[in-house]
Design a protein around this nucleic acid. Sequence first.
RNA 1: GGGCUCUUAGCUCAGUUGGUUCAGAGCACCUGCCUUACAAGCAGGGGGUCACUGGUUCGAGUCCAGUAGGGCCCACCA
Length: 876
Amino acid sequence: MMEIANKYSPKDIEDKWYQAWIDAKVFKSTPDDREPFTIVIPPPNVTGVLHMGHMLNNTIQDVLIRRARMTGYNACWVPGTDHASIATEAKVVRMLREQGIKKSDLSRDEFLKHAFDWKDKYGGIILKQLRKLGASCDWDRTAFTMDPEYSESVLKVFVDLYDKGYIYRANRMVNWDPVAQTALSDEEVIFKDKDGLLYHVRYPIVGMEGEYITIATTRPETIIADTAVAVHPEDERYKHLHGKKIKIPIVNREVPLILDDYVEMEFGTGALKVTPAHDVNDYEIGIRHNLEVVGCLNADGTISDDMPVYVGMDRFAVRKQIAKDLDAAGYLVAKEPYKNSVGHSERTDAVIEPRLSLQWWLDMKKVAGPALEAVNSGDVELIPGKFINTYRHWMENVKDWCLSRQLWWGHQIPAYYIKDTEEHVVAINAEEALEKAKKKTGNAKLTAKDLIQDEDVLDTWASSWLWPISVFNGLTQAGNKDIEYYYPTQVLVTAPEILFFWVARMIIAGFEYMDERPFKHVYLTGIVRDKQRRKMSKSLGNSPDPLEMMAEKGADSVRMGMLFSSPAGNDLLFDESQVDQGMFFANKIWNAFRLIKSWETTDKKSSKREKLALTWMEAKISEVGVEIDKYFETFKLSEAIKTIYNLIWTDFCSWFLEAIKPDYGDPIPRETLEKTNELFEKLMMILHPFMPFLTEELYHLLEEREEGDFICLAQIPAFKKSRSKSLTDFELVKEVITGVRNFRASKQISPKEPIELFIKTADKKVFEKYEPILAKLLNTSTYDFVEEKVDGAGSLRVQTHEFFIPLTGVDIEAEKEKIIKEIEYQEGFLTKVQKKLANERFVNNAPEKVVALEKKKQADAEERLEVLRNSLAELG
RNA sequence: GGGCUCUUAGCUCAGUUGGUUCAGAGCACCUGCCUUACAAGCAGGGGGUCACUGGUUCGAGUCCAGUAGGGCCCACCA
């Protein structure tokens, strides 16, 4: 036979098979008669590179899709990328700056050209990297959220929602990112607890020399934009000031003292400075009291030109400066440390500035209904189920969605403003817009030049929420073959972090545009953390490089490492030793294969021993196969892989192979080898979704395959619950073998030294039947039955069976002691059972089955005690 | 502040509707083995008052209440 290395080396094998799969187009899916099993990838940012989170997420998807492919489904995994407007634009801006180009010097078209150049050159690297992992995507279907047809669907939806009256344009307080200089949705704001200061500042009362009112604020820099001071109407401390005017320090603006319930008397000094332009709550108060709105900040967070002071200074610099100035002028009363939560931009980490601006909004209440209902009713199932509460709460309190972003990279909002009017129209393109504009204004002379398209682009999620539909062109070619066949998809695998950003919105879009859920299951993965439970991140430097790790240890091992401990919804504490465990496993299988492959064959019939082992192993695979099916149904992949691991390592290698293994140099009957090969192949199929490369390699090394025959296309047999008696028999056999090995170890008898074994049992049958296996695995020179104890022998007991192994210098006292201990244990157990059975309420109330079981336990214990007492008596 | 959730062996986790000798698995650990598939291995072994307190029940790791300590989500605080 050919030489096979005694260590498995994944390096060349993995690339070889991936290329072979691609060449043979095995991942390609087209609609046919089979049931579809569809997964759409959560599209990574087009600029992204593979990190551990992707590894987990995509490993899970690949396992599910490969398993589906091997169990009769037409499996289709659609890959693609997201244009990720804000993240990508930030990256392009940075790249240009490094080349000495300022975004502000470029026109929109020039900028977009740079962006597309960049995307074409570097974009989608992550998809190449996914191939290393073994991702079995249908690459011909690779989609991008800014593909022409995809873009068309995004705009179409915007127009439709506008026409339905769900989209409106309004001037409102938004979350402003001063670094990216764009509005953000509420979901893009992350609140972080920050240690800050609470400044107590006294404002003079107009017309009351020497009298002040002291306010408390964390943002003294906005004092210059104050347009009122508010107190609670019932606050006795300030009743004498009702109706007075207050003078704002530094800017010397006179503002009213207003009364509002919003103010909490207990907080700070009970007096609140009101800055409608720079605080959400103050804005509301401003509306109630008809206050002037004075803005003091530019879009980039610096003080605006129309302020009398600090012009052009950054808001944080001003905070320090104004504190000094207030102090110098005698206005600063106190500074106290204060912890509050401050909103940060998800993408740039800039501190969010509430800012009044004109944006496009989607009235979420108009569209959220069916999506809430779908999850409530289980039509869409979240895994694990605990997320349903979070989802429900968000949906029931859903806020309007700010759709516009002040960026260039993305889908430009299809709204057109008509020159010299206050009017606008919304249309899929300029031509249609012109038609609509003519109609709307009644002016047939309008030309394209009279329309100005909105400068802003749409939020990224306003395109990715169509992903499961638009990757199949379900809106631009409604009712086409693909969308009819693949939609709805089966499962979405993603992180809980984007449950609202993306998942909820996809469900909304699914019902709004397909009248159907986009997916049946949502599998929510955990966060990949290190051993200290810290989130893996670039900045912490605690994340291994997935590509290096795969190159070094093999993608199969990394996949195993990821899945060993990652129940849905639980964080994965990643440790490279888990990858090593995967590597050891690969090597174990490799060596099991080497053993099988090394056997010469003979034409002799299978021996009794081999037949017994084969029967058992076959039954065992069925039994465990059923279990694994169940784990897949419930998405317990971690459990599934552990079960397979044990099936292969413990059952197949440690028990089965050891049982059939011929003596060194001896041949094995051909029919035994053939059956063994079949079993091995079956195990490789079950394992394949988890370790695709190794299993494909072994599938081909096992025998010559026809062209186009790949394990990844093979069908895993349907397993039926096996009730073969061999399963229970073999458990007893294993118990006896373990018992005797333990006996050997305690008596320091080497496994190489044959022993004489005498069995005293009331049930000889099973021991007669399994004699060949027991004799081999126990290395016996004598295997016989006795009616009495054997003199000069050590003993052990398994269930009610007793075993004697003659040896020199048996310590009778020690033997006795051992038996006495066993008697004590059994007596204790028996007493417990008897007590239970003596309890009338138990016997009357417990189900018959349970009572019968207790009676059986009692009988068994009594039987065992009898054996033990006899043995003790025999010892004298 | 509101809601959700978790606490089982040194670590990471299983444990279905309450009922088998039910207290489990993997890793780690200990002991003995370089036995011609594999030392990335083989064989054997020890280890837990199921967070705490109480309740329901014939019976609680499992159900209920409270306590302590984690985690998540939402809201929001001048």
